Simulated scan of single mutants.
Amino acid sequence: MNDLYTVNQLAEELGVTPRTLRFYEDKGLLSPNRQGNNRVYDKRDRARMKLILRGKRLGFSLAEIAEYLDLYKIDGNGIEQLRVLLRRVRERRDVLERQREDLEATVAELADIEDQVAAALAERGAAPVEGQGGPG
């Protein structure tokens, strides 16, 4: 059993809960073998789970992750899988770049409002409330 993992062993190694592993199994992304009533995961399952977690961390949907993993079965040389990954990475990066631009614009607008309100308070001889917001 040196290259096999129980639910708890794999969960602990990957920093997830056993429930997380069962969730991805229910979604069809993992298919561990059984020894009696126990699930046992092999190196392939471990590698798939690492890809799933990385995909989730990068913001990919379960459908996108499943599509990528399914290409392992039909694409012997990996070329189509790499093409799909490249396309998805570019799409995700474009979305994040737009979000960053929107976030930067929002932060700049809030800073402008903050300056206007602080100036209005100063004109009225009132000090801004300390300890709430602001750079720091």
Rank of each mutant, 00 (worst) to 15 (best):
D3N: 11
V89R: 15
Q81H: 10
P128W: 05
K56R: 14
Q35I: 14
D26T: 13
E97H: 15
N38E: 09
I113A: 08
R124K: 11
D102R: 11
Y68N: 03
G15V: 03
E109I: 01
V7Y: 01
Q81A: 11
E101K: 12
R98K: 15
A105Y: 00
G78S: 05
A126K: 12
G134Y: 06
D102P: 01
E12A: 13
Q9D: 13
I113M: 09
Y24D: 02
L121V: 06
A66H: 06
P18V: 10
R83H: 15
Q81N: 03
L86M: 11
P32E: 04
E12K: 13
A66R: 14
P18H: 05
R98N: 11
T106V: 07
I65A: 00
T106E: 01
T6K: 06
L4V: 06
V16H: 08
S31G: 08
V129H: 05
E80H: 12
Q99E: 15
K43H: 08
R100Y: 15
N2C: 00
Y5I: 10
L51G: 02
D42M: 07
R34M: 03
E130W: 08
N38P: 00
L121C: 07
L103H: 12
Y68W: 04
E67M: 00
K73W: 06
Y24S: 05
V89W: 08
A122F: 06
Y72A: 02
E67T: 08
F60T: 04
R92M: 09
N77A: 15
L29Q: 04
